[in-house]
Design a protein around this nucleic acid. Sequence first.
DNA 1: AAAAAAATTAAACACTTGTTTAAATTAAAC
DNA 2: GTTTAATTTAAACAAGTGTTTAATTTTTTT
Lengths: 225, 225
Amino acid sequence: MFKLNTCLVLFNKNSIPLKSNFNDKQILILEVAETLFAEKGFDGTSIRNIAKVAKINIAMVSYYFGSKERLLESLIVYRTSDLKNQLDNLLNEELEPIDKINKLIELYINRINSNRGIYRILHFEFTSKKREQNLQAFSELKKGNLKSLEAIIEEGQKKGIFRKDVIIPLITPTILGTFFHFHMNKPFFENLLNLKTEDLYNNYIKTNLTKHIQQTIKALLIYES
Amino acid sequence: MFKLNTCLVLFNKNSIPLKSNFNDKQILILEVAETLFAEKGFDGTSIRNIAKVAKINIAMVSYYFGSKERLLESLIVYRTSDLKNQLDNLLNEELEPIDKINKLIELYINRINSNRGIYRILHFEFTSKKREQNLQAFSELKKGNLKSLEAIIEEGQKKGIFRKDVIIPLITPTILGTFFHFHMNKPFFENLLNLKTEDLYNNYIKTNLTKHIQQTIKALLIYES
DNA sequence: AAAAAAATTAAACACTTGTTTAAATTAAAC
DNA sequence: GTTTAATTTAAACAAGTGTTTAATTTTTTT
């Protein structure tokens, strides 16, 4: 009567297989919801709206997710769950700490850039006071990410490469903040940097912007005043 | 039966008298709406919600503003109408172009910083596709602001102080974008820069951040590659 | 003080919202 | 093939939405 844990195997863009706890219909609903939430906001999107676009009955959202709020929570889980695994894999690679940091930044920017919908939702819904409760899943993810980052940096500090007076929790906001500012002003930078096509824009992010952020964090961690 | 143009005189923080087309009750409604829209978003705020906080009848919003959407438009007009006058006054001052630019930046940052509610609304509501139509009033304001900026810069270009290959429409986004990025990550910078009190935070914006933006724009306008 | 205009109110309007129900259909298990 | 479980459906639910109405109160004008 109420089946939630159908497991299937998905492939991300680097063809690393990963489990998902959502079935095909749930994923359809999640991806339609992602598009609409990103376009019109959570409050601006109705379940009937989602159902119409996804061509499903309006009761299916409650059937599969319980409620609209839980749909949002599931969406966050769906789009962020494998990030933890990717970070864990990175942690176990045999690399110098600074190379791990660089890879971590590349991974962050790549992920956000290819999942703009969910990060737009996170940016808009969770900077408003109304949705403060819903971010539990998101908050736990961030805690996990921070732990991974801490592990890398403490490794670098033990080796004497990184400064010891750096405030680790502030590094993630720096990485993400730089990207968001760039992307929130997309039309501006498209003109400024002559990024006429979507490809040119994406390429600029992948190369120049990522490089800039890497240099920034490297300077923060290594530079002695 | 329907009176909209009661004029009264208001005083802004620099005690420059300015006319307002809204009466006391309308202003009450506008300011309550501003708070709630900023807190919970336009869609997340109901007219009954506004009426309750403002302690007025729910019909008063329609009576004074026509509709909820027109209330939002009126709010934008209310909070941005005197900016044009301030810019015009600045234009007519006898100052060197670079000093006018510096004053313009100071004026922008000061205004946004002391009207965070409306700029939060503008940032959130008008970066979503849903509210694209409503920004006519806002769009006209920006066009007017751009004209003022163009006037100052062309004056500087004639005097041979400013470069001539600068893209003027991109300067405003640079000024505002720098501030917004700082402010959207307020908790981050409060920690990073040890701005424990609201006063310390505001003071940092007024001094260091403003100075930084002024230096940036100055470099953009004057620096020869 | 009387008349006209403006402001305010409670009630109702028609519509949308998220969610639930109970029946019907489809798929899976035996 | 029958039974059981999972899915899908249309309909209804109660609550909330923006807006309008028509009557009442308050204020202004004459």
